[in-house]
Simulated scan of single mutants.
Amino acid sequence: MVKIILENITKKFDDFTALDNINLKIDDGEFMALLGPSGSGKSTLLYTIAGIYKPTSGRIYFDDRDVTEIPPKDRNIGLVFQNWALYPHMKVFNNIAFPLELRKVPKQEIEKKVREVAKMLHIENLLDRYPWQLSGGQQQRVAMARALVKEPDVLLLDEPMSNLDALLRIEVRAELKRLQKDLGITAVHVTHDQAEALAMADRIALIKEGKILQVGTPDEVYYKPKYKFVGRFLGNPPMNFIEAEVENNYLRIYESKIPIPTQYRRLINKLDVKKVLLGFRPHDAELVKGIHEGLIGEVYSFEPLGKEQIVTVTIGNTFIKVFVPEGERFTFGEKVTVKIREDRIILFDKKTEKALEFLI
């Protein structure tokens, strides 16, 4: 196990800045997810940790060892790619054994290690097959076995499940999380799938346009997003946002008024803000028929999801989504009131889109 420390990492490709002064510490044995949209810089950061890219500036440490100038083969990493990159002309055994053969490991030891890791990943019966004879999930396990057979200090995963179907992805991510914990390997996992990051990671680093916006546990980044972008990117459906004006001790939202949440009263006075973005998760509100105290709107649509449904409500020109129990029935255009849990409201600065508590 090693600790990874990234200090002021910047990576430029000609005039394009892919990584902009990244600072991040990944603890021994931690599973860190690098999460962000396509083009955010998350894969570039992974390949910089691997040594495939050399940073334009900044330093990379594995524990106290500066590995910035050290080539990938000398960093003792295991790397699993999105397309798995198996050798089609080699059987599964030889694909897994390849890193050990490069190291000139004795044949008897290679045999032992390959069979051990194959058993761990439940592919011991596939060792005599070729990659083209395997399913996607089996190929993914072979790629994982090849990365693990050399007993790496760090496991780097570049969207290894993106080519699997949805059900298999859920199964494999549970196996991978258990395997990583059993082996105690420090793992860094690149993904654009927020559900995958929330389910697997000890901590998540949210990346946008080459900058890390927030690092925290799944609960921290989900319930306490530092930026509107984080709240919007995490969750399905994502966090709701609606503009509000501060009027004395109330927030005015179109024709509705709600009290300023207790936790924000002093902060709003201190910052002297007049307009905010109110954010809340769809499952942190309830929908009540008729006009009551809360956010008044009209039912726009509803989507049954089995034990619950998502009801979309229009409030002014803003769409709000709320989870509602399956038995409740609504009609299009019906007047309803959205009642939000006060302790789950997040207020953001309208200009910077940053949560008010992070402005101080």
Score class of each variant (00 low, 15 high):
310 I>L: 14
317 N>L: 12
56 T>L: 12
89 H>I: 04
354 K>G: 04
161 M>Y: 11
225 P>T: 06
225 P>Y: 06
198 L>D: 02
120 M>D: 03
22 I>L: 07
58 G>Y: 14
312 T>L: 02
242 I>R: 08
289 K>G: 11
299 V>S: 09
101 E>N: 09
249 N>D: 15
92 V>D: 02
112 K>V: 08
240 N>C: 11
298 E>H: 14
326 E>F: 14
207 I>Y: 03
199 A>Y: 13
224 K>R: 15
313 V>F: 06
100 L>I: 11
99 P>H: 00
359 L>N: 09
77 I>Y: 09
262 T>N: 14
103 R>D: 09
310 I>P: 12
289 K>N: 07
237 P>A: 05
261 P>Y: 06
272 D>V: 00
172 V>P: 00
77 I>G: 08
167 L>G: 08
299 V>I: 09
59 R>K: 15
322 V>P: 12
171 E>G: 00
114 V>C: 10
330 F>Q: 12
227 Y>N: 09
314 T>Y: 15
197 A>K: 01
136 G>W: 05
144 M>V: 05
286 E>I: 05
156 L>A: 03
346 I>W: 09
181 K>Y: 06
252 R>S: 12
313 V>Q: 13
204 I>Q: 07
191 T>Q: 04
179 L>T: 15
136 G>Q: 06
198 L>V: 15
173 R>M: 07
36 G>V: 08
346 I>F: 02
191 T>L: 07
240 N>H: 07
245 E>W: 08
30 E>K: 05
88 P>C: 03
76 N>W: 11
320 I>R: 06
136 G>V: 02
140 Q>I: 04
128 D>L: 13
72 P>Q: 14
229 F>H: 12
192 H>K: 02
176 L>A: 11
64 D>Q: 10
304 P>H: 11
141 R>K: 03
14 D>T: 15
8 N>I: 13
272 D>N: 15
